[in-house]
Computed example of a mutant assay.
Amino acid sequence: MTLVKAGVVVLDCAEPEKLAEFYRELLEGERTAASANLVEIRGADGVRLAFRRDINATPPSWPRPENSLQVHLDFLVDDLDEAERRVVGLGGRPVDTKDAAGPYEQRVYADPAGHSFTLRLLPGTAPKQG
């Protein structure tokens, strides 16, 4: 019998309602629980995130070294340009990391509270032509 049934990533922030709404819209999900200090959502694909009120929360400064990364989320997308328009339209902002190294095509953003996340292009599923 499995003791742990599921996991939830929890982000500390000053305004959990606003941050939950950003991610709910981005992930096309639903709010599943809320209290005075915690809001939880579930994305359309089942990913679960929660946002906990911390009036002293300090946004990460990543990629600058003076503050830790704290947490990092990766979201897989079919179209980076379309996903970027959605992120920016919801209040997120691109983060210039000057590091495009790696096996995946990806872009880094900050949510409205300053947490970083990556949009990563899903690997192609169609066979190469030619």
Rank of each mutant, 00 (worst) to 15 (best):
H72Q: 07
D111H: 06
Y109N: 04
W62Q: 06
R42A: 13
I41C: 03
G92E: 03
A101M: 08
R107E: 04
V95L: 15
R53Y: 00
R31K: 15
A83Y: 03
R31A: 07
N67P: 00
P65F: 06
E105V: 12
L76E: 10
K18A: 15
H115F: 09
F117Y: 12
E30F: 01
D74G: 09
K98N: 15
L76H: 08
P127D: 09
P94D: 11
L11K: 11
L26D: 02
A6W: 07
V95E: 13
A110W: 04
D12I: 03
D78T: 14
E21F: 07
V95F: 02
D111C: 06
P60W: 00
L90Y: 14
A33H: 15
A44L: 13
E82R: 13
E84Y: 08
T118D: 14
F75E: 01
E105F: 08
E25C: 07
L19A: 04
A50Q: 02
V39C: 04
A44M: 13
R107T: 03
I41T: 03
V88F: 10
F51H: 13
R31P: 04
G29H: 01
E82L: 15
T58G: 10
P112H: 12
A83H: 05
F51T: 13
D111Q: 05
L49E: 01
